[in-house]
Simulated scan of single mutants.
Amino acid sequence: MSGNPTELRMVRALNQALADAMEADPTVVLMGEDIGLAGGPFNVTRGLQERFGERVIDTPISEAAITGAAVGAALSGLKPVVEIMFMDFVTLAMDQLVNQAAKAHFMFGGQARVPMVLRTPHGGGQSAGPQHSQCLEAWLAHVPGLKVVCPATPADAYGLLRAAIDDPNPVVVVENKALYAVKGPFAAPIAPVPIGKARIAREGRDASVITYGAMVHRAMEAAQTLAAQGIDIEVVDLRSLQPWDKQTVLASVARTHRVAIAHEAVMSFGIGAEIAATIAHEGFDELDAPVLRVGAPFMPSPFGTGLEGAFMPGAKDVVRAVRELMGQGEATNE
């Protein structure tokens, strides 16, 4: 793909990344439920079966079977890209993903590789209820042998997915459903985004907000509200959750001396807890206020639109946390 700078929706950027990877490497194959003629539940794979034929495989409804077949295919020389329709259903593939894909390189003494990608959407905002809205990325980031990325922009969605496909080990690409329709700059050709490298989405001087995925956009919205109040925040988009870019995060904390970590997942035992602990250990001398976290309450996601809106963390929660950091109010997250 080449051309002048333009805008592209994230769903099209992901589709383009898959198409370009398949065009460049005949060992790349796609596997998943309804990804062929139907193009997947969110149209990410639309048109790819017509273009690449049997390399786009519609599978039975069995996440364990899909992931297990992908592990075997990867060990045999292919580069499978698996789609799990909703992140909630990754629970059914955990044995194959955690005990097989993540461990094979270690258990075979470095003589085997599992170059597979597992794509899966997470997040709420669609009144899909507690079994179709979960953000479970912290589970996977806890597993040695797995890499986990979560893009916030179409360009990063393309770049991270290409990097994941090129990686010789298993990578989980987490895509927030609320971002599929979001447009962003897309100046082709786009290089792969290095896994493990964050970006500064907005520079600021008063406080740092460390975040990823859809919460990047909510943090940017909060930045506008806070700027009107004379508070200038820096927004760090992690992009990669395992490994995460500790150096960029600590450098941001050293500039602003106040930090909040925000994610859509429930706050308890999440990505934010790991980063907060690291900052407290390695960046304590730079802090002028306690590290705060923003996340969802510890409960299943509600169905009702009003209840789900209250459940999901948003820009107002980031504003509240930053104001507490600045000594201008208290943040609550119950």
Rank of each mutant, 00 (worst) to 15 (best):
M85E: 06
R46T: 11
P80T: 05
I35P: 03
T27Y: 02
A104I: 15
V90N: 08
G109W: 04
L37I: 15
A73G: 04
G47P: 05
A69K: 11
V28W: 11
A73Q: 11
R55D: 00
E7D: 12
L75D: 02
L48Q: 01
A93N: 09
M10N: 07
R55G: 02
F52R: 01
M10D: 07
G53R: 02
G39D: 06
A93H: 07
G36S: 06
L18F: 00
N4C: 05
T67Q: 13
D20W: 01
L48K: 02
R55P: 00
A69I: 15
A21K: 08
I66H: 03
M94S: 14
V90Y: 08
R55K: 06
T91M: 15
P26Q: 10
L18S: 01
T27R: 10
L78R: 14
I35C: 04
F52E: 02
E54T: 14
L75K: 11
E83K: 06
G68W: 04
E33R: 00
A101N: 03
L97V: 14
A74T: 04
N15M: 01
V29G: 02
F106G: 04
G47R: 12
A70Y: 13
S62R: 11
L92C: 15
T27A: 05
K103H: 10
M22P: 00
R12M: 13
F89A: 13
R9I: 14
A17N: 06
V98E: 07
E33T: 00
L18M: 02
E54N: 12
P41M: 10
L97D: 08
P80W: 04
F52P: 03
F52Y: 14
K79L: 05
T59K: 08
P80G: 05
I66N: 01
G77Y: 06
F86Q: 09
L30S: 06
F89D: 11
R46V: 11
F86H: 10
A13K: 09
L48R: 01
K103A: 12
L78V: 05
T59L: 10
N15Q: 10
F108A: 12
V82T: 03
T45P: 02
M107G: 09
K103D: 07
I57K: 08
T91G: 12
A38G: 08
M22V: 00
M107R: 15
L75P: 01
L78Q: 14
R55V: 00
G109R: 01
E63N: 07
L48V: 05
M94T: 15
Q16S: 05
G36I: 02
Q100C: 12
P80C: 10
G77F: 05
I84F: 05
D25V: 07
D34H: 10
A19R: 11
G39I: 03
V11M: 09
E83N: 05
N43G: 07
A24L: 03
L30I: 05
P60Y: 11
Q16E: 11
F52D: 00
M10Q: 14
A104Q: 15
P60R: 10
G36K: 04
D95H: 12
A70T: 12
Q100M: 15
N15K: 01
T59H: 06
L37V: 15
